[in-house]
Simulated scan of single mutants.
Amino acid sequence: MSDMKAIESFFDVQLPTLYIDVQLQHHGARPRPTRFNTDLRTGAAIKSFLPVTKEYTINVFAVSSWLSGRIGTNMIPFAGDSAGNYLCLYYQYRQGEPVVVFWNHEKEYTYEFVADSFGEFLGLLY
């Protein structure tokens, strides 16, 4: 739980409760099913959720640092695909629970809408 508090403190946000639960139970896991759709594409796939602890080389903090200046403000990467793209929690539109967006590395500063919440995103996986 301290890793989750570190993320909340670092990004100055409150993480969705369901995201915290998933990370605590399946830290850095490869979900099944893996596929999801965005508002612009069908059949995108998650490779794995990003670990939340700095014990791993590739983690939420490291990816956020690598992408700094390339992704929108108030975006926290939480999962990646096999092509270098990331799913992010996006806090831009409202206080409280963020929306889920897909950041495409070939189109920096742009993203594709996926779901209104992390819970909705999990329900959309197929």
Rank of each mutant, 00 (worst) to 15 (best):
M1P: 01
M1I: 06
M1D: 11
D3R: 03
K5G: 00
K5H: 00
S9G: 01
S9A: 10
F10E: 08
F11D: 00
V13S: 00
Q14S: 13
Q14R: 14
P16H: 07
P16K: 08
D21Y: 15
D21M: 07
D21F: 08
Q23R: 13
H26T: 03
H27R: 11
H27W: 15
G28H: 03
A29Q: 04
P31I: 07
T34Y: 12
F36S: 01
N37H: 12
T38F: 09
D39P: 00
D39G: 00
R41W: 15
R41C: 01
R41E: 13
G43W: 04
G43V: 01
A44D: 12
I46F: 09
S48W: 14
S48K: 11
F49A: 00
K54M: 15
E55Q: 10
E55G: 02
Y56I: 09
T57E: 11
T57S: 09
T57K: 11
I58P: 00
V60C: 05
V60T: 13
V63K: 10
S65N: 08
L67M: 13
G69R: 11
R70E: 13
R70N: 13
G72D: 14
N74A: 13
N74H: 12
M75A: 05
M75F: 06
A79D: 05
A79N: 02
G80H: 09
G80L: 11
S82V: 11
S82K: 12
S82Y: 13
G84S: 08
N85C: 03
Y86L: 10
Y86S: 02
L89E: 01
Y90C: 05
Y91M: 08
Q92P: 00
Y93C: 00
R94D: 04
R94H: 06
R94M: 03
R94P: 00
G96T: 10
G96E: 07
G96Q: 10
E97Y: 06
P98H: 12
P98Q: 09
V101F: 11
W103H: 05
E106Y: 06
E106I: 02
E106R: 13
T110H: 15
T110K: 14
Y111P: 00
Y111Q: 03
F113G: 01
F113S: 06
F113D: 09
S117L: 10
S117N: 07
G119E: 15
E120A: 15
G123K: 04
